[in-house]
Design a protein around this nucleic acid. Structure first.
Length: 959
RNA sequence: GCCGACGUAGCCCAAUUGGCAGAGGCACGGUCUUUAGGUGGCCGCAAGUGUGGGUUCGAGUCCCACCGUCGGCACCA
């Protein structure tokens, strides 16, 4: 091999003077700003579509396989970004850039979810119109994200607040409004098909009358009752502190709003609902074909809350009372019944003289907040109605009670109480001295664990708690059903269900926790509903030609909010006040008439239910996305796996949207799929949850957070703020903990490439990690060494040589290439970075840097530090962007060495190391090991019983 | 209480998925350049797989029990 023609200059280290071409933060900034402008000018990140306005079929073919990478839609808050926000954005950017270099046509864009409460609140606080503040906030975000060097297609950046965007949000609402769920076909269909079925008689009307005999108003009511978006007068979550109603998903476990933490009250109100419950089974079943983490799937399953059981009918003086139970097999042990205080039959069941007492109980239950009633540490209360019901399996008369631990919102609002087999019923029976008949003999182990003698196994008065589980049934038989001796609940349930159905007193059924989605908000800053009401108060969807229904401009955009505890206040939508806007003259097909607009707005989640599809075709004026374009970017990849549902190839975001955005978006997508507008049945095929950036936060003695940057001290000394002692706590970086670090500080100190590299190096993308500003310098030093290996710090000239690479470095290079490819593909950027540093450190030790290692190093670094890579690629004499270069490929022959050192264990302990040929067979390896001096000494003359040879890994001698 | 994720060096993290516990970064020590300082160069560093059992020739990795941290759900019949 030839000698290098130049030698590496000594690092300039004379005091004071920093060499003019050292990679400093000032140089980094200059390079970064220059390349960001260059990329924009050259449209470097513009991604071609197969057809339509952004279509360029030739470019699509040249780029390769499609790959749609998506970040969760950011909400542009007034405070701008902190270094925790872009963790996921940098991750997707590195991945997308890597994939562009490995033969993929990558779509990566960023838009803004800008409608909603915080924008409105920020506007109110600052006295500016939300349209103004929102535009400012989006600009700020765009500027901060651009400064990071993210390779987004700028043409595809959308905002939910743009009328050209929400026109399609309204259009999709109309699709949902004009659809019904066909339970037999298990899919949504256009509402016109339902009307056709009624008209033609293929579907029987609810009361059996011919459709033509039903008055028009009733016809409309029947149809409206089937729509997937419908107006309902039902219990909703009223939040006076926010001045609006909110969805179940937006109420925390302790009965408060997730935004603002205000009390939420259950109230009957007339509101828009979305029939998401029709999709419960599909939302549940299709989780199986999604490449999501178990954590998120489990949360969605829990939220949908499907439970299989049976409906059982009990006869009572007020008629049949149906209950839902997951344990119909325990019906013989039902010794009383409990109704929710809100149950409609309670008044009728109250016997003479008990009415007043019962009314009082109901009144006090109604005063309790839901979350108080659900506090399981509270002692159960209840009251006897005086009436009894008949247990259908044994004809026994059992008392009917009312108790607030039974909720009207789940099942049927009535339960059969089986105190021997349900802890809640057990406690209730003990308190009110109700019988606890045994129907299972608990196993001996349970008896001994609960200090019950086996003689008392069927004496429930000796039991401390209810027995829940498998055990042989006793006293569980009637003329047609005999469970006695059956020892498992599965068979018991199946047998009982069959009997219930055969005797017409119940059936196997399924219950869900999921409720329909409350879709209207009494706010200003949201999408108006594309709905008007006629003189009879009937809703009509506006035709496409009248979309968008633009949000009217007004100075009085603040909603009326109330005392957060004023439960009986009433929502007042800001749009209600705009009488000129509300009243419209329209011809909807039967002449010009006066209509009133719907004055609600959609919830913040509406715009994010379909935004990924607008990225695909952002300028299309004829449809929300061209079907061909959707099929190209999101169609099912059955070539990858047969059950691939289609959707975004990689979706990265936080875990906090598990049951909000991710459930709603799946629902909308399935409706659009059913109606034939999209080819994918799921929006997000693969979901990856990035971790959070954590940071120390500090609380003073009042438990109030203080600005972390103003705190002095350390763990040993203790911490102080303005001289007052404070305590350190650990939390997610953010405004609320006052521990945010701005990316602007990092740009000034190190540059964007160093920040990108640091965020990726601190751990795997899905792990939360602490932010340590003092650690960032490590990545800065690496980039300085990389720069110095290629560039003379004094002259700024490229110093690579065209010498051959020595064998050792060449092998290291190929091992690095092999490793980095695999790690980047698996989103493990931290280990990829470690290997690049290792390679660079090895290159530093060479006399000079051969081009043969410099160029692959720059290419491998390009996804991580794109600005620096572009600059170095120029210095290496090229004039194209690094964005679409081919990522290096390892030569497999260079990945294996001829000789290899393997450890030799004796009885599992490493005693020696020997060097053998890599392709040595087991016998040769064994012979070499047994001939080794240290091994001979260790086995001390004993005959080896067994020698285990793991080729290329190790040898273990067992004596 | 139930479900999920996770415990490796002073700190952040690796370990080819059952095969030599250490790749990388920070911190730390030494040293060079410097009047000095460090966002510079070079060299060095120790000890550690949460606890207790089990399987195995061999366990950070698999199994059981427990402890701890984080997240979600919770009178859901």
């Amino acid at each position: 091999m030839s000698q290098p023609t130049t030698t590496r200059p000594e690092p300039a280290a004379t005091g004071g003077e920093i060499p003019p071409h050292r990679y400093t933060s000032a140089l980094a900034e200059q390079i970064e700003l220059r390349w960001q402008d260059w990329w924009d000018e050259h449209g470097t990140f513009e991604t071609p579509n197969p057809s339509g306005p952004l279509g360029d079929p030739d470019a699509v073919a040249a780029r390769g396989e499609r790959l749609f990478v998506l970040d969760m839609f950011p909400y542009p808050s007034g405070k701008g970004l902190h270094v925790g926000h872009p963790l996921g954005y940098i991750g997707t950017d590195v991945y997308a850039r890597f994939k562009r270099m490995t033969g993929h046509n990558v779509l990566h864009a960023m838009g803004y979810d800008a409608f909603g409460l915080p924008a409105e609140q920020f506007a109110t606080e600052t006295g500016q119109h939300p349209a103004v503040t929102t535009a400012q906030n989006i600009e700020k975000y765009r500027r901060q994200l651009r400064r990071l060097g993210l390779a987004h297609d700028p043409r595809r950046s959308v905002s939910t607040t743009d009328p050209q965007y929400y026109r399609w949000t309204q259009w999709i609402f109309n699709q949902i409004f004009n659809a019904w769920y066909d339970d037999e076909a298990q899919r949504a269909r256009p509402i016109a098909e339902l009307i056709n079925q009624f008209e033609s008689g293929t579907r029987v009307t609810p009361d059996g009358r011919p459709w033509a005999d039903i008055p028009a108003a009733e016809q409309q009511a029947i149809v409206d009752g089937r729509r997937l978006a419908y107006v309902s007068d039902a219990p909703v979550n009223w939040c006076p502190g926010l001045g609006t109603v909110v969805a179940n998903e937006e109420v925390t476990a302790d009965g408060r709003s997730d935004r603002g933490n205000f009390p939420v009250f259950k109230r009957n109100m007339r509101q828009w609902m979305m029939r998401i419950t029709s999709y419960a089974d599909r939302l549940l079943d299709d989780l199986d074909v999604l490449d999501w983490t178990d954590a998120i799937k489990t949360m969605q399953r829990n939220w949908i809350g499907r439970s299989e059981g049976a409906r059982v009918d009990f006869a009572s003086p007020a008629g049949t009372i149906s209950v839902f139970t997951t344990r119909p097999d325990t019906l013989f042990g039902a010794s009383f019944m409990v109704l929710s205080p809100e149950h409609p039959l309670v008044d009728e069941l109250a016997t003479a003289g008990r009415g007043e007492e019962i009314a009082a109980y109901r009144a006090q239950a109604a005063l309790k907040k839901d979350f108080e009633r659900q506090d399981d540490t509270r002692e159960k209360t209840g009251i006897f109605t005086g009436s009894s019901a008949t247990n259908p399996v044994n004809g026994e008369e059992i008392p009917i009670w009312v108790a607030d631990y039974v909720l009207m919102g789940y099942g049927t609002g009535a339960i059969m109480a089986v105190p021997c087999g349900d802890q809640r019923d057990f406690e209730f029976a003990r308190k009110y001295d109700l019988p606890i008949p045994p129907i299972q003999r608990p196993p001996d182990r349970w008896l001994s664990e609960h200090d019950v003698s086996t003689d008392d196994s069927l004496d429930t008065s000796a039991w401390p708690v209810a027995y829940v589980g498998n055990a042989a049934y006793v006293a569980s038989a009637n003329d047609g059903l005999d469970l006695n001796g059956v020892d498992n609940t599965t068979d018991g349930i199946a047998m009982t269900n069959a009997w219930l159905e055969a005797n017409g007193v119940g059936e196997a059924t399924i219950s869900y926790k999921l409720r329909d989605w409350l879709f209207s908000r009494q706010r200003y800053w949201g999408e108006p509903f594309p709905i008007v009401y006629d003189g009879d108060g009937q809703p009509h969807a506006l035709p496409d030609s009248l979309l968008p229904v633009e949000l009217p401009d007004t100075d009085s955009f603040s909603p009326r909010t109330f005392d957060p505890d004023d439960e009986f206040s009433n929502p007042e939508s800001p749009l209600d006040r705009l009488e000129d806007w509300v009243v419209v003259e329209l011809d909807l097909g039967d002449g010009v008439k006066t209509y009133r607009r719907d004055t609600n707005v959609m919830p913040q989640w509406a715009g994010s239910c379909w935004y990924e599809m607008r990225y695909l075709d952002p300028t299309n004026e004829n449809c929300f996305v061209d079907p061909d374009v959707e099929r190209y970017w999101m169609g099912p990849r059955t070539d990858v796996r047969p059950d691939h549902p289609g959707g975004v190839d990689l979706y990265v975001g936080g875990v906090e949207h598990a049951v909000l955005h991710l459930l709603y978006a799946r629902f909308w997508h399935k409706v659009l799929f059913d109606l034939g507008h999209v080819s994918s049945k799921e929006p997000y095929a693969r979901l990856y949850n990035q971790g959070y950036v954590m940071a120390h936060a500090y609380k003073d003695e009042r438990e109030i957070y203080v600005e972390a940057t103003e705190v002095d001290g350390d763990d040993a000394q203790g911490y102080t703020h303005n001289g007052e002692p404070v305590t350190a706590v650990w939390g997610k970086m953010g405004k609320s903990l006052k521990n945010a670090v701005s990316p602007d500080e990092m740009y000034a100190q190190y540059g964007a490439d160093t920040l990108r590299l640091y965020e990726m190096a601190t751990g795997p993308l899905d792990a939360s990690r602490p932010w340590e500003t003092r650690d960032v310098v490590g990545m800065y030093r690496f980039l300085q060494r990389l720069w110095r290996n290629l560039v003379d710090e004094e002259s700024g000239e490229c110093v690579v040589v065209d010498a051959d690479l020595d064998d050792e470095t060449n092998r290291l290079l190929h091992r690095t290439v092999d490793f980095v490819r695999a790690e980047m593909d698996a989103l493990r950027f931290n280990t990829a970075i470690a290997k690049l540093i290792e390679l660079n450190n090895a290159v530093t030790k060479l006399e000079a840097t051969p081009r043969a290692v410099a160029e692959p190093m720059v290419k491998m670094a390009a996804p991580l530090v794109p600005h620096l890579a572009e600059e170095l690629w120029r210095k290496l004499g090229h004039d194209e962007t690094v964005t679409y270069l081919d990522f290096p490929v390892a030569d497999p022959e260079l990945l294996v060495d001829d000789m290899i050192e393997v450890p030799v264990q004796v009885n599992g302990k490493v005693r020696s190391r020997i060097t053998i040929a890599t392709d040595a067979d087991a016998a040769a390896a064994e012979a070499a090991a047994l001939a080794d001096d240290k091994v001979i000494a260790a086995i001390d003359g004993q005959a080896p019983k067994k020698v285990i040879v793991i080729t290329g890994k190790m040898i273990n001698v067992v004596v």
